[in-house]
Nucleic acid binder design. Structure first.
Lengths: 152, 152
DNA sequence: CTTGAACCTGTAGGTACTACAGAGCGTAGG
DNA sequence: CCTACGCTCTGTAGTACCTACAGGTTCAAG
């Protein structure tokens, strides 16, 4: 029998890549529920909480603000929303997710081209991104998320 | 003949969706070069600067930290890097871009399923994201960007 | 030439972490 | 059982990245 490792804050931090202190912060602001504690008061997480934290962390890395993440989590948690509200919010999130995918694919394409050009002898002092991300249609309809991810 | 609109800070702000003050901030920290000024000292941008700001803004929305954006811009600006450095950095960026795309696609799929379930009568108080983003292979190799986008 | 919107600078405030100090818990080794 | 050392606890201060405001100047429409 493999013994299950105690999911303490430090372990969870390593497993998720989330900074140790940030875990406590997310609990403070109510993104993570307060976990059960040991006799002596140490936090003890479980798989559900681990997945939740993973979800939060990845959303942050994808440029969603804490409030947006909260919104997504509330959808999942089954909050006090009506059918219509849930659907509207989900559709809105879906739109912004798709917009991000589009932008990332453009960036991917550009970087890929840069790499292939770098095979040659010279740094192709490329004005590539100049051609990129011109100011297109979406200018006035952009979603403007607020989100930092400070790193360790 | 269509008259070209003067690209003042306010106009640029509206065109890019970037907060008025943030434009000045990016100039302060050297992400945007100081633009030419009018007689009276007002900033006057051009298409290049507009594209650059657009690029920065979108990168931020995609969860890249300011330092990562700076890195990307330096590649483009043709900095003082050697061939090898340029390539290594580009490949690294490419990897993180692809990782983001993967995550976003998972999220897209989940949200899509939620929407389709919302057609019915009930809010399907879905534990969907529970199954999502489990703690997979990448746990220890994650890139941990720092990035906020505060909103308007 | 007036007048109000847009811009200027400097500075203070806000969000989202991140690090530190000083004390307590927990467990492996003796 | 006891010690020792690492991990965790709390509160608080500091950092990164904006965002808003105050008090004054410029610009352009009328």
């Amino acid at each position: 029998m493999s013994k299950a490792p105690r999911l303490t804050r430090g372990v969870v931090s390593k497993l998720t890549g989330c900074n140790l202190e940030t875990i406590r912060y997310y609990e403070q602001i109510g993104l993570m529920p307060p976990p059960p504690r040991s006799e002596g008061g140490h936090r003890l997480y479980d798989d559900n909480l681990l997945r939740r934290l993973n979800f939060i962390r990845r959303c942050r890395e994808l440029g969603f603000s804490l409030e947006e993440v909260r919104g997504l989590l509330t959808l999942v948690d089954g909050g006090t929303y009506t059918r219509g509200e849930v659907k509207d919010r989900t559709v809105a999130h879906l739109r912004s997710v798709r917009s991000k995918i589009v932008d990332l694919k453009v960036l991917e394409k550009t970087l890929k081209e840069m790499v292939s050009k770098c095979v040659g002898d010279e740094v192709p002092d490329c004005p590539v991104i100049d051609a990129l991300f011109r100011n297109d249609d979406r200018a006035l309809s952009r979603s403007r998320p607020r989100s930092p991810i400070q790193g360790s």
